[in-house]
Every structure is written in C-alpha cells, then in structure tokens.
Nucleic acid binder design. Structure first.
Lengths: 104, 104
DNA sequence: CCCCTTTATCGTAAAAATACGATGATAAAC
DNA sequence: GTTTATCATCGTATTTTTACGATAAAGGGG
C-alpha cells in the first residue's frame, strides 16, 4: 500500500519549505520593518514596535506571530511585557540558504 | 507647500521595498519551485515550467508575471514561445542585500 | 489561407492575508 | 483587592492572492 500524497504537492524539500515560509514572512513591509528595528534594537518590547509602526497594537501582534511562526524571532515574557529579539541561529540559517540558492 | 505623504508609510527605503517585493515573490511554493527549476535549467520555456508544476498554464503564467514584476526573472519571446531565465544581476543584488540584512 | 502551437490576459470564484476594535489574560503597582 | 499596564487572541470586515477556464494574440507549417 502506497502512502497517499497530497493532490497538489510542490515538491519542495523541508528546508525549501521552511525557507519559503521565511521569505513570505519577510515579504510584507510591516514585518520587514520589524526585523530591521529588532536588528538595530535587540531586546525590545512589543510596545516599542507598536510605536514605530503605523498600525494598531492588535495588528502588530499579529505580524509578530507570523515572524514567530516562521522562526525568525522569539519572544520571552518579562512580567507583563514580552521581550522580542531576532533568532540569530535562524537568521544565520536563512542567510546560508539564500547564499546557496539559485546555484550560489 | 509640503509634498503629500501616503497615510500609511512603512518608512522603508527604496532598496528595502524592492527587497520586500522579492521576498514576497519568493514566498510562495510554486514560485520558489520555478526559480529552483530555472537555476537548474537556464533558458527554458514556459511549457517546461508548466510541466513540472501541478498547476494550470494560466496560473503558472500568472506566477511568472509576479517573478518578472519583482525583477527576478526575465522572459524573451522566441517565436511563439517565451524563454525564461533568472536575472543574474538581480539575484546577485538580492543575495548582497540579504547578507547585509539584520546587521550581517 | 487555414490550422496548430505557445503563451499572455481576462473574468471570476474561492481562499488567504490584512487590519482593527473589543475582549481576555497576566503581572506589577498601589 | 483594586487598578493599571502590557500583550495576545477573538470576531469580523475588507482587501489581496490564488487558481482555473475561456479567450485572444502571434508566429510558424501545411
């Protein structure tokens, strides 16, 4: 008995799928600005990010979740606040993948 | 008289906006597969790409347009077909940007 | 000229992403 | 215990993306 494949498979490796998810996460101006801000301001709080973005708090929180799900950032609860920072390992992995992408 | 700014500006530089558009273009499995295929098979035709993707021809053509608009690929008409290839300058630029991204 | 091949575009239906106010949840301050 | 501060999640409206069939456009082949 063969294992059933999904009807529409894009035939990407696990690494490629993860890379695609990261690309998608970074493919929105708000999230690009968030990672740029986190790069310049390591260890900052949700409210700080809300202050620099022209978006409501709920929307920023949603964008942060997308970046978290992509593994690009991690947030640790600090009392009543949440401290966010770039996941340096994930960022390093992302850069490596891009370097080797397109036959690099 | 001040120049009117858009109501919601994400305060990204032109380069960052271009980078974001490229990320978005690569943030879909079909398009990631297309660039991977083009990387392995330079100079191929639309039909070749249609053959390797689980999508209709119209949909693939649409995805190709997204990659063209992002500047990642370029297509030249060859008789009744269109020959696609990666834009190596754009790809190089993309890699450089990612290398220096996140304080690289 | 009439087909055939190849591809882009159009129109549109369905799905996903985006944005916001309202609400809840948790911890600190008083 | 009450209040305040901070943040995530819920519900939902709007917009965008995705996908497909149908159609048009354009270059050979007969």
């Amino acid at each position: 008995m063969e294992t059933q494949q999904p009807v529409k498979s894009y035939d990407l490796s696990a690494a490629e799928e993860r890379l695609t998810q990261m690309m998608k996460a970074l493919g929105h101006p708000a999230r690009m600005q968030i990672v740029r801000y986190l790069s310049a301001n390591p260890q900052c709080i949700t409210g700080d990010i809300v202050d620099v973005l022209p978006l409501a708090q709920a929307t920023v929180s949603q964008h942060l979740k997308v970046l978290r799900d992509a593994g690009l950032i991690c947030g640790t609860v600090e009392g009543t606040a949440t401290c966010y920072c770039l996941d340096i390992d994930a960022v390093a992995w992302f850069r490596e993948q891009v370097s080797s992408l397109f036959g690099g």
